[in-house]
C-alpha cells in the first residue's frame, strides 16, 4: 500500500491558541482512516488544512506526492471534500449546483448525467429541481455527497459524513465507501460516531487538544489501551474515564 495523504508536523495557531500541535500521520491507498476526537479537538481544522482550505502555521501536507499548497489545483482535481455543514448556494437548484461542480471539474456531460442518475437513485434524491435554500440538512448532505462521488475522486475527505443522513442512505454510503476503497481510493474521515469508526475504518487516529494521542488499527489501539470497545479506548485516551463519577455527582 502506498502513502496517498501524508501530513508532516502540522501545526495551526489561531492567535495564542494552538489548535493543532505538530500532528503527523498518513493515509494509504485502499484505506479508510478515521479521525476521532472530542469537540474542539482540532479534527475539522486538520481536515481543512489537508484539503488546502486553511494554511498551516507550520508543517507539510502531500497528496499523491504533491504539496497541497504548492500544487493546489492538481491536488484539488483529484480529491473530494464533504464538509460537516455544507454551506451551499441557496439560490441554485440542486441540478444547477451539480452542473456547476461538473463544469469546474470539466466532467463530460454524458458521464455526469449517468453518475448523477445512479447516485440519485441510490440516495433517494428526487429534489434536484428544487432550490437548495429550501433543503433540509440531510438533503444538503446528500447533494454534497453526490457532487463529490459523481466525479470519482481518488482521495475523499469526509467530515462527519453520516450526520443528517437517513439509515438507508448512511448504509449505502458506508458500502459505497468500502467499494471505492477496495478499488484503491484513500478516505480520510472524521466522525463522532464510534460505531461507524469501529466498523468502517481500517486505521484510526485519535486527536485530543490538538495532539494526535493514538494511532493504529483497532487491534493496535486495543492492545495499546488495554480496552475492548472503541468507546472505552476513546474515553480512556481522551480523559473521559471519569464519566461515572461525573454522572453520580450531578
Amino acid at each position: 500500500m502506498s502513502k496517498i495523504v501524508v501530513a508532516e508536523r502540522l501545526r495551526k495557531n489561531f492567535g495564542n491558541v494552538e489548535a493543532v500541535k505538530s500532528v503527523s500521520f498518513h493515509v494509504n491507498s485502499g484505506e479508510i482512516y478515521g479521525f476521532l476526537g472530542p469537540n474542539g479537538a482540532g479534527k475539522t481544522t486538520t481536515l481543512r488544512i489537508l484539503t488546502g482550505v486553511l494554511k498551516p502555521t507550520d508543517g507539510k501536507v502531500e497528496v499523491y506526492g504533491m504539496d497541497v499548497f504548492k500544487n493546489p489545483i492538481d491536488v484539488k482535481s483529484i480529491i473530494g471534500v464533504v464538509p460537516d455543514e455544507p454551506k451551499l448556494y441557496e439560490n441554485l437548484t440542486g441540478r444547477e449546483f451539480l452542473e456547476f461542480v461538473g463544469s469546474v471539474f470539466s466532467m463530460k456531460r454524458v458521464e455526469m448525467n449517468q453518475r448523477v442518475l445512479e447516485l440519485s437513485e441510490a440516495f433517494g434524491v428526487n429534489f434536484l429541481s428544487k432550490f437548495i435554500g429550501d433543503y433540509s440538512h440531510g438533503m444538503r448532505q446528500k447533494l454534497m455527497l453526490i457532487s463529490v462521488l459523481m466525479r470519482r475522486p481518488k482521495v475523499l475527505f469526509l467530515d462527519e459524513p453520516t450526520v443528517g443522513l437517513d439509515a438507508k442512505s448512511a448504509k449505502i454510503l458506508k458500502l459505497l465507501l468500502r467499494k471505492y476503497v477496495d478499488e484503491g481510493v484513500a478516505v480520510f474521515m472524521t466522525t463522532h460516531v464510534l460505531e461507524i469508526a469501529e466498523k468502517m475504518c481500517d486505521r484510526i487516529g485519535i486527536i485530543n487538544e490538538g495532539e494526535l494521542i493514538a494511532e493504529g488499527t483497532l487491534e493496535e489501539l486495543r492492545s495499546y489501551s488495554g480496552r475492548e470497545s472503541l468507546e472505552d479506548i476513546f474515553l480512556k485516551l481522551t480523559g473521559g474515564d471519569e464519566i461515572k463519577e461525573i454522572v453520580d455527582s450531578l
Binding site: G52, I73, K87, L88
Partner: peptide, 12 residues
C-alpha cells in the same frame, strides 16, 4: 460562506 467550499475545488 461559499469561499470555504470554492477552495476545495480545483480553481485558482
Amino acid at each position: 460562506d461559499d469561499v470555504g467550499f470554492l477552495l476545495t475545488l480545483p480553481l485558482s
